[in-house]
Design a protein around this nucleic acid. Structure first.
Lengths: 206, 206
DNA sequence: AGGCAAACATACTACTGAGTATGCTGTCAA
DNA sequence: TTGACAGCATACTCAGTAGTATGTTTGCCT
């Protein structure tokens, strides 16, 4: 469904989403105005409100796309017959580069992450945000399952799994907070960063 | 200086700060209006603008207080002759409960953490935000120093220290994102949580 | 007593920013 | 050829909000 939406989405609408992600990232989703997004596009409001019925829906679709990015990359690398440790490592090595590749989107979704209760008035907005939460939960469960499996077969230390899960998720999303792409950074930087995060995460769980 | 300010601060002004932290946490700092804060206080705007010249300054002082909370608790527990591992553990065991005790303040400061560039117009606001960044850096350096010491004496694995530091800081602040105080939670929950985070952090670094 | 600040409340103003109504232009099918 | 619709731009409206100007009360000092 979401994939269909993504593939069916017009190039113009995708451009609007990219611009919105960029501007929402820089100014914050509620500080940024629709006119700011329009300016980023070199257009006017009309273009945005042609594709999206409200600012809330625009924000929701940015967040939804952020969730879709990782949801399309990570599940395929999970091998049922691999060890939990190896699975988790591959998940992290996939997650981190994909997040950094689509950084603006994830910077936006993290803003709502802080627990700011949306005041979505319209039904469509509520529905979209429910869908986001559902996708996020599905994504978390991927990691919860591998955690659980690892604790059961003894590769991971037994501890409060919710706390461990939340800590793990924040650890692998930590670069979203501080990473800024630089032209002079080594080619291997993202890969090295991912590897270091995977090492730390696995060590923290063992 | 900051301590003097805190002790000299009138009880009424502290009440306003508490209310602001609470409301900013719930609605987001820029979504929330001054009237929202006033309503939380059972007062009107007048009271707020009597103590603070602008919304930006109010927000800044909330963030500043958040930084002060941990800066007053953590440094005293650092023992120069203790091992880096033991020092770091004590720092975490102090940091986490203090953060959860003053949760609204830290939820607010984390919003600005996401990288939203402030558009502080007035000079006073810029000065305050500079002070916040300075205090934050000073606090980070406490952890950087103990990390460095641990890597040099071999108790911590040698790796990119900036990445390790950022990951560590986010790990120990992770509960800010998901913790919600509950009446039915065990007495020892916060202590147990802190211990588990300390274990994970130390394991991640070794 | 009386006056004088501090500590608010009330009643405005000015402006921003979301949303709308409508106009314009190219494209494509019949 | 035309008409009809997608894809925008332009020009508005209107509600909400930061900030101000000005009362009003309450303690407190002399």
């Amino acid at each position: 469904m979401a994939e269909t939406k993504l593939t069916t989405m017009s190039a113009s609408k995708a451009q609007v989403l990219d611009a919105a992600a960029e501007v929402f990232m820089r100014l914050g989703a509620d500080t940024a105005s629709i006119d700011d997004v329009a300016r980023q596009l070199g257009s006017t409001k009309g273009r945005i409100y042609h594709h999206f019925p409200s600012k809330g829906v625009l924000l929701a679709e940015v967040c939804l796309r952020a969730a879709d990015f990782v949801l399309q990359k990570v599940p395929p690398v999970i091998a049922p017959d691999a060890s939990p440790e190896e699975n988790l490592r591959q998940m992290i090595l996939t997650h981190v580069p994909e997040v950094l590749r689509t950084l603006p989107y994830h910077k936006v979704i993290i803003q709502s992450y802080v627990g700011v209760q949306q005041k979505s008035t319209t039904a469509l907005e509520r529905e979209l945000f429910a869908q986001i939460q559902q996708e996020r939960k599905a994504y978390e469960n991927l990691f919860r399952d591998v955690l659980q499996a690892g604790m059961q077969d003894g590769s991971f230390r037994t501890q409060n799994i919710s706390i461990a899960l939340q800590s793990l998720l924040l650890l692998i999303n930590a670069p979203v907070f501080w990473y800024r792409p630089r032209t002079d950074e080594p080619e291997t930087f993202v890969a090295d960063l991912s590897a270091q995060l995977a090492d730390m995460a696995l060590a923290a769980l063992r």
